[in-house]
Amino acid sequence: MATIIQASHLGKIYANDSVNTVALEDVSFSVNKGEFVAIMGPSGSGKSTLMHIIGALDKPTSGTYYIEDTEVNKLPENKLAELRNKKIGFVFQAFNLLPRTTALKNVMLPMIYAGIPKAERERRAKEMLTIVGLADRMDHTSSQLSGGQMQRVAIARALAMDPAIILADEPTGNISSVQAGEIMKIFTDLNKKGHTIIMITHEPDIAAYTKRVIQLKDGKLASDQLNGHKFYGHR
């Protein structure tokens, strides 16, 4: 199976005046295509830092990190932006939709930066919104949508560039449990279609939807195991 993420001995130290804070220490793991991984840990365990590194929003201070064949820590800022655009689909806890902008235009946004022509952008955005079940809400702005609907728009946006990884940071943290169930069903369906999904969460019942759970504690990898009783992969 093709390896999508290869992280080796990742470390992150925040230098703040004279005090160095160790956020990550010697974290190694890899993710193959088609996996559905939860990264768990209490607050302060370094899961946000790890997510930023996986998402190419930040660089580790030590270790190496590959997405497919690209060594991310060696890329300049502009190439990182391009990498985020093409390889990573973000789903944030706070949705982060553009205010006063329709669902359709929100989904089109990453495609603008990829230089995709307008007609194609619109066609794909409509397709993605249909996948997440919002075909009838395309012209609604975020203030006209519920939390669950906003998160579905964000998922459609994450899918728009057909990225290698969908990276979700506490995607159910700001919505009701009923809507959370709907969101997790969408993720599960996407994973069945072959999408690779990495999700940060601290809720065990949300992590239960995934196939593999990575536990972090004090910046270190505490455990990395398959979920439940299902046999999965070669590990």
Binding site: R84, L98, R157
Partner: peptide, 16 residues
């Protein structure tokens, strides 16, 4: 600022 952060996360280069 948040909007700018979002745009960057989605792949907008600083000069854009």
């Amino acid at each position: 600022t948040r909007e700018i952060g979002l745009r960057k996360a989605l792949g907008a280069q600083a000069n854009l």
